[in-house]
Each structure stands twice: as structure tokens, then as C-alpha cells.
């Protein structure tokens, strides 16, 4: 039962990891916590629902297109709403604008789709693979597989492409990056777009296993944030480790302590990490910029 519980926890863990990666990408490049992450996740699920149900596109195309649409949306939003936040505390201003985005996205979803639950076209049949008396749902394998592929491409992108490198450079030293001719504002826009895109893809990935609903992102956003903090806010490997740990802890709490404490455990951990080890599991420390 222990292995089974842990394995099942990994499924939601991967989704938390994708959301946590989005938090990390935005935090690294602009020192902003993107409060709209959960609602971008929900928006992704609805965009995917539209593409899959109304346009009848195959799932892979839905996944890619949703990713691109949210990437474009995120970049435009950063360029025209977040970037102009120029006061002596631009981070705080930008953060409040992401709160605004979250409210707007939920409002738009309610106006367009109402507050009902929608079924996302089933992708794979409900089945499970048996391995030493542990049954592994096929759906879980799919979520895990796609997430791993996404993580791999993200690493390649950040290490081996011009844009990826300029993103990293811009986040490490903005002035220096500008001096050597890196387009910092593009890099920042792209970072926000990437975060939106990751959230949107996570939304499409989980939608066939759940249902699509205007408030589906609220709890997920909070858990993604907890995962990001748990791992170490701003670290990509930390986000993944944080997400997976969180998923497993949830299932172990519900399985061995009490199902009533499932969510409470998550937020108790958030509080504990923030007070005892604010730098997270991986313990990355960022120097405060002067």
C-alpha cells in the first residue's frame, strides 16, 4: 500500500511541479510571484477544451497549441501590463497586477463558460498496468511521461538556445546582460510567457483526468506555489522536487493519518518551510540586488 500511495501521489506531484516551474521561471527573471499561475492553469484547460471539443483537434495538437496560445498571451501581458510597472517598487506593482490578472481570468471564464463542470474528451481508456501487485494507472504514466519530456526540453532550451541563455543571463545580472547587448525586456516577456505556457499545458494534461471548471485553478495555484517554495523559490530542479514531494506527502497524509488533513498538511508544510528553512530544500540563496 505504501508504494501504491506514493506512486499515486506522484501523478498530482507532476502537475504541481509544472506549476512550480512556472513560479520559478517568473521569480528568477523578475523577482515577482505570479499570483495568476493557478488561473492560467484553468485558462489552459478551457482553451484546450475549446480546441478539443469545438475544433476536434487531436490531443497532441491541443497540447502544443494551448502551450503556444498561452505563451503568446503571457508575453503580451508582460510587455503591456507588467513591464510598464515602473516605480521604486516595480516588483510589488507587478505582483499586484498578476493578482488582477487572476481575478480577470476567472471572471472571463465565468462569463464565457458559466460555473458548471465540463467533461474533457477522454484521451486514454481507464486502465492500469500491474507490476508486482501494484497497479499503475495508464493515465498516470501519460502525465508523468509528458511532464518528463517537458522538463527535458526546458533544460535543453535554457542551456543550449540563444533565448534560453539570454533569459538566464538577464535573471543573473540585468545590467551586465544589457551591456553585452542582450534584449532583456524580451527575455523577461519570454519568461512570463513560458510560465503561462507551462501552467496552460498542465491544465490540458490534467483536464482529461478531471473536469474543467472555473475555480479549478485556485487550489492548484496555491499548491504549485507551496511546491515552488518547498523546493527553493526560483530553482528549476527545486520546483520539480518540491512538486513531487508535495504530491507524495498529500497521499501519505490522507492514507495514513486522515483524509481530512490532506490539504491542511500541505499548508502546514508551507508555513514550516517559510519559518524554518526559507531557502527551501535545495537551499538556493539569491543575493539581494542593491
Amino acid at each position: 500500500m505504501l508504494t501504491q500511495q506514493m506512486l499515486s501521489g506522484l501523478a498530482s506531484g507532476f502537475i504541481y511541479a509544472l506549476l512550480a516551474l512556472g513560479f520559478a521561471a517568473v521569480y528568477r527573471s523578475m523577482r515577482v510571484i505570479n499570483f495568476a499561475q493557478g488561473d492560467l492553469f484553468m485558462t489552459g484547460a478551457f482553451v484546450g477544451l475549446f480546441l478539443a471539443k469545438n475544433l476536434q483537434l487531436p490531443f497532441l495538437a491541443v497540447l502544443l497549441l494551448t502551450g503556444l496560445i498561452l505563451l503568446a498571451f503571457g508575453m503580451v501581458f508582460e510587455r503591456f501590463v507588467l513591464a510598464p510597472a515602473s516605480s521604486h517598487t516595480p516588483e510589488v506593482h507587478a505582483m499586484i497586477r498578476t493578482v488582477g490578472l487572476s481575478v480577470v481570468l476567472q471572471g472571463v471564464a465565468i462569463i464565457t463558460w458559466g460555473t458548471e463542470e465540463y467533461r474533457f474528451p477522454q484521451l486514454l481508456s481507464s486502465a492500469s498496468v500491474s507490476l508486482y501487485s501494484i497497479s499503475i494507472p495508464v493515465n498516470l504514466l501519460f502525465v508523468a511521461g509528458t511532464s518528463v519530456i517537458l522538463l527535458g526540453s526546458l533544460v535543453i532550451f535554457l542551456r543550449h538556445t540563444q533565448l534560453g541563455l539570454s533569459m538566464r543571463a538577464a535573471s543573473q545580472n540585468r545590467l551586465g546582460a544589457e551591456v553585452v547587448g542582450i534584449n532583456v525586456s524580451l527575455a523577461r516577456s519570454f519568461a512570463f510567457g513560458l510560465s503561462a505556457s507551462l501552467a496552460g499545458i498542465a491544465g490540458v494534461l490534467i483536464a482529461p483526468l478531471w473536469y474543467v471548471h472555473y475555480s479549478m485553478g485556485v487550489m492548484m495555484g496555491l499548491k504549485g506555489f507551496t511546491a515552488a517554495v518547498l523546493g527553493s523559490l526560483g530553482s528549476f530542479p527545486g520546483a520539480v522536487i518540491g512538486g513531487l514531494t508535495l504530491g507524495v506527502i498529500e497521499n501519505l497524509t490522507a492514507g495514513y493519518v486522515s483524509s481530512v488533513w490532506k490539504d491542511a498538511a500541505v499548508f502546514a508544510i508551507l508555513i514550516a518551510v517559510l519559518t524554518l528553512r526559507p531557502q527551501g530544500i535545495l537551499g538556493l540563496r539569491y543575493k539581494e540586488r542593491v
Binding site: 501504491q4 498530482s12 483526468l209 478531471w210 497521499n251 501519505l252 492514507g255 483524509s259
Partner: peptide, 20 residues
């Protein structure tokens, strides 16, 4: 007696326990 929150995504922990 297992519980869940309305709108929860994942009920697997409760279901695995019940199965066992």
C-alpha cells in the same frame, strides 16, 4: 469513514486505503 473536499482532483489516497 473517509472524507474529501468538494472539487478535489485526486481521491486516490482514500480509494487505495479503502481497497486495502
Amino acid at each position: 469513514v473517509e472524507k474529501f473536499k468538494r472539487g478535489d482532483l485526486d481521491m486516490s489516497a482514500q480509494l487505495i486505503k479503502i481497497k486495502n
